[in-house]
Amino acid sequence: MSQSPAPPRRRRGNARGEQTRSVLLAAAVRSFADRGFHGTSTRDIALAAEMSPAVMYAHYATKEELLFELSIDGHRSVQALLETEVRRHTTTTDRLRAAAACFGQWHAEFHLQARVVQYELDALSEEHLAEVTVLRRAIQGRFGELIRNGVDEGSFQVADVEMTAMSLTSLGIDVARWYRSTGKWTPEQIGRHHGRLALRAVGVAG
């Protein structure tokens, strides 16, 4: 199925170049999701974008560069969304619920991109993987911070803060693996469910 990647968190060049890159990124998402990174050629992506390989190479020298841009933009998008939702609330309980809800919902709404960037990490170059890993650790660390705040104030009962944070982010990430737009639940329903699960994980009735 067709799905555009999450809105990019960085801009490069003129409007025409940005439009071309957006088309290529959307084609890469579809191609990587259908065939996997290693099963997709640059020609496959160019054909999916209805462009010549020469046009693609003018913007991306390799398919790994496309994967990296999808990965970095996806992680930056979900991190920005996470911070926005956390800032909308004042209590630790509401903040954790909102964080888990938006994280799960994002992985459903952008499930093709999420599936690619979460499960094709090994295809990134060492340098690119290191850059993406910084963002992944920051996202998990934000969950850990929210949980730790609740524990410190006595609102949450958690034996291991780090493990709980990892469990909650892993739960959200896994949505991209099983979610289908033709399925039973909407991204919003999934998000609300994940918010309730997060509270139960820290000993609060959701």
Rank of each mutant, 00 (worst) to 15 (best):
N14E: 15
R196A: 12
E85R: 02
T133C: 06
P5L: 07
D44F: 05
L25E: 02
E145F: 07
L70D: 05
M163I: 10
S2L: 15
E120L: 05
V55M: 12
M1Y: 07
R12S: 08
R148A: 00
E50I: 03
Y119S: 13
L25G: 00
F110T: 03
N149I: 09
Q113P: 05
P53V: 03
L129T: 02
H89A: 11
R142C: 04
M51P: 00
R87K: 14
A27N: 03
Y60I: 05
L67V: 00
V158E: 08
L47D: 03
A33S: 03
V86H: 03
T20C: 09
G74P: 02
E50R: 15
S41A: 06
G206K: 04
T186I: 09
A46L: 06
M1V: 10
Y57P: 04
T93R: 08
R21V: 08
G144F: 00
E64V: 05
E162S: 09
V78A: 01
L96W: 01
T182W: 07
A15F: 09
S181D: 15
E153N: 14
D44R: 01
E131M: 13
I173M: 09
A33P: 02
H75R: 14
V175C: 04
H194C: 03
E127K: 15
A130F: 11
T91E: 11
S41R: 07
A176L: 08
G17T: 15
L171Y: 13
F110W: 15
R180I: 09
E109M: 05
L129D: 06
L25V: 05
S125L: 13
P8I: 15
E83F: 12
D34K: 02
R76W: 01
S155F: 06
N14M: 03
H107R: 04
V151A: 00
T169G: 08
W106T: 14
V86S: 05
P187A: 13
A61F: 01
P187C: 13
E18A: 15
S77D: 14
H59T: 09
T133A: 13
P7M: 05
V151G: 00
R10N: 09
D174S: 12
L70S: 07
E65L: 06
T91A: 11
G172N: 04
V132D: 03
G203V: 14
V151L: 05
A165H: 00
R148F: 03
L25N: 04
